[in-house]
């Protein structure tokens, strides 16, 4: 199970990195989301995989002798997911604003037009 998850994590990292280096900012955000998920899955895997043993004491207070799942990685992942949710939501709002002001989601267009405008401005001043 661990090795399979390792392959999945590797795949997620690779896909995330690939999307990050694309020019489209929408794809960049998707890449960021994948990177975050890869990191979460990584925490989940290194926190030991245990099947069907939730980390809480049952109502009768009797603990089973078998090992239970470690709650800390789950808490970490939950926190990271929540934070990721907030950051990605902000990033989405940001790219919407960018698209509205620039009229394109291509980073190259954004950069070159900015430089073009700067040059234009300088020429006008001359």
């Amino acid at each position: 199970m661990e090795s399979m998850l390792a392959v999945v994590i590797g795949g997620l990292y690779a896909a995330g990195m690939y999307l990050m280096v694309r020019r489209s900012i929408v794809k960049m955000i998707f890449g960021l989301a994948l990177l975050g998920n890869a990191a979460n899955l990584l925490i989940f895997t290194v926190g030991r995989l245990t099947r069907g043993r939730p980390p809480h004491v049952p109502a009768d207070g009797v603990l089973s002798a078998l090992p239970v799942a470690d709650p800390v990685p789950q808490a970490l992942i939950l926190t990271a997911i929540v934070i990721g949710f907030g950051v990605q939501a902000f990033a989405l709002v940001l790219i919407k604003r960018v698209y509205q002001t620039v009229g394109s989601d291509d980073q190259d267009v954004m950069v070159t037009e900015n430089q073009g405008q700067e040059k234009l401005g300088q020429e006008e001043e001359r």
Partner: peptide, 13 residues
Amino acid sequence: MSLLIIFTLMEEN
């Protein structure tokens, strides 16, 4: 927070 983001994204302009 979620509604703030959702409303901002759904704004028409």
